[in-house]
């Protein structure tokens, strides 16, 4: 059976040059990051170049994405949250297109690597800390002191708040990473059954192989949903965390 882990291998496509003694390689991961950025650029800039008053389908798609992300920020972080609009919009588009492109066979899923999702989660994490300290000074630490808690349990609550704050980037990044990884492994395992049955058992295998094939089709639909949903969840959590930087006093 085909190795379900093989699809996550980083492969060097061609070398670009050397910085000192380190060789710079253009990898499959890099390729699909560039593709995700290019698709985002195409959708957001190519379709809006006409600046039509009555949008066409593609421009409407770009506008729907814009409104979707803008509404997400407004509903979680309020109107002030719009200062993070470019960051949140970039996160959403990058993750969404990386996830969706990754479903296409023979592509590479950028977000199935923990280092990528962790970097994005830490970007949000440090943006919250830096912006929170910059705009509220030490008042930012009121984030860890909820209102209306009796004095005798306050130290425990503060401790829990701090631990939960510090663990945010972990849950934030692992959620996306694990969903992408598990989904692609499941797809690959079932697809492997189809090929394995067909190859090993002849006609019986061909008939038997249709069952996992149906499963693969259903899972692909599910993965499409997961790809969108995880992009949404990641971005929504980013908005909620950024809201803490704007309103640390709750």
């Amino acid at each position: 059976m085909a190795d379900p882990i093989h699809q996550f291998e980083i492969v060097n496509l061609f070398p670009l040059g050397k910085i000192g003694s380190t060789e710079i390689q253009f990898t499959n991961s890099a390729l699909f990051m560039v593709v995700a950025v290019a698709v985002t650029g195409l959708l957001m800039l190519g379709t809006t170049s006409g600046r039509q008053l009555v949008p066409g389908r593609l421009q409407a798609m770009a506008e729907v994405t814009y409104e979707f992300v803008a509404d997400m920020i407004r509903s979680t972080a309020g109107e002030e949250g719009m200062r993070f609009f470019p960051l949140v919009f970039s996160l959403f588009c990058f993750i969404l297109f990386a996830n969706v492109i990754g479903i296409v066979p023979y592509t590479f899923t950028v977000t199935s690597h923990i280092v990528v999702t962790a970097s994005l989660a830490l970007l949000v994490f440090f943006t919250v800390i830096v912006y929170g300290l910059y705009s509220h000074g030490l008042g930012f630490f009121r984030l860890f002191v909820p209102h209306g808690i009796p004095g005798y349990i306050l130290p425990f609550v503060v401790l829990i708040e701090i631990v939960s704050f510090l663990s945010r980037p972990i849950s934030h990044s692992v959620r996306l990473f694990a969903n992408m990884l598990a989904g692609h492994i499941t797809l690959k395992v079932f697809a492997g059954f189809v090929a394995g049955l067909g190859g090993a058992l002849g006609l019986v295998g061909w008939v038997g192989g249709t069952l996992p094939l149906i499963m693969v089709i259903a899972l692909t639909a599910l993965e499409l949903l997961v790809a969108f949903l995880q992009a949404y969840v990641f971005t929504l959590l980013a908005c909620i965390y950024l809201s803490d930087a704007l309103h640390p006093g709750h």
Partner: peptide, 30 residues
């Protein structure tokens, strides 16, 4: 290292494109 390098590069390009071109243009259209 290679993933971080490319992620940083791509995300910065994406951010600049979104912040300087795409969002102002769409905000203008709306």
């Amino acid at each position: 290292a290679s993933q971080l390098l490319w992620l940083g590069l791509c995300f910065v390009v994406l951010y600049v494109m979104v912040a300087k071109l795409a969002l102002p243009r769409m905000a203008g259209i709306l």
